[in-house]
């Protein structure tokens, strides 16, 4: 069978090519940490140190808001990086390093919480002074008298207690979505569930929190 030789005009060919590239780009974003990860995989410990420095604040937020305890957060976080270091050779770049290390941290925190006896939440004394200028805080205080009247420390403690009432899985998605501002798709990849499940967990977690924070309503 003879295949007809069709020659596309250059503009059409270029457009088709660029569309294909755009499609691939949306399917898979390049990993900004690819180079550091490659160096670390080849035994460059300085590169791994850079990754630790880069991801510590983000992962701290994730673990802290799930455990509500600074000491526990520090221990879990140390173990997370130690595990990531040991498993780094096995990281094949099928996801971004960010998603990979977040998955490790989420799983390790969930395992830790299952083992941990219900311990009293120990909130941090330090709250960033920028909270007073945060638009969300300003709006919340403008809407609600109890929020305005409560001092920041009290508000923080109430929120932590409310968070601890949620199941571990629900707390994880609330932390990633509401506190860390991550999109549903990213959370779904990290927790290994569908986007629908993530949305559903958020819905029920918000409803529960609404009940626990009833006092803050006008």
């Amino acid at each position: 069978m003879v295949t007809p030789n069709i020659t596309l005009p250059l503009s059409v060919a270029v457009a088709a090519d660029s569309m294909k590239t755009a499609k691939e780009d949306t399917r898979r974003k390049p990993d900004p940490d690819k180079e550091l990860v490659a160096r670390a995989q080849n035994g460059d410990t300085v590169a791994f140190d850079e990754l630790v420095v880069k991801f510590t604040p983000k992962l701290y937020g994730l673990v802290y808001h799930m455990t509500s305890n600074h000491e526990d957060t520090n221990d879990v976080l140390q173990d997370v990086f130690a595990k990531a270091y040991r498993a780094l050779k096995r990281f094949q770049g099928k996801s971004t390093f960010y998603t990979w290390i977040y998955s490790i941290a989420t799983n390790m925190t969930l395992n830790f919480l299952k083992k941990r006896n219900r311990r009293r939440a120990m909130s941090l004394d330090d709250v960033d002074s920028a909270i007073e200028n945060d638009p969300d805080y300003i709006e919340a205080t403008s809407k609600s008298d109890p929020v305005r009247e409560a001092n920041i420390g009290e508000l923080q403690e109430r929120l932590n207690i409310a968070m601890q009432q949620l199941s571990e899985d629900h707390r994880a998605v609330v932390t990633m979505y509401d506190i860390q501002g991550m999109p549903h798709a990213e959370i779904a990849k990290i927790v290994g569930a569908s986007e629908g499940t993530v949305r559903s967990r958020l819905f029920y977690a918000h409803r529960q929190l609404q009940t626990y924070l009833e006092d803050f309503r006008k």
């Binding site: 701290y60 808001h65 709250v127 920028a130 909270i131 805080y137 609330v174 929190l209 609404q210 803050f216």
Partner: peptide, 15 residues
């Protein structure tokens, strides 16, 4: 409001 209160928690971090 619940979401705004939760968002405020991002300021809760060590020095």
């Amino acid at each position: 409001m619940v979401r705004q209160l939760l968002a405020v928690k991002r300021h809760e971090k060590p020095d």
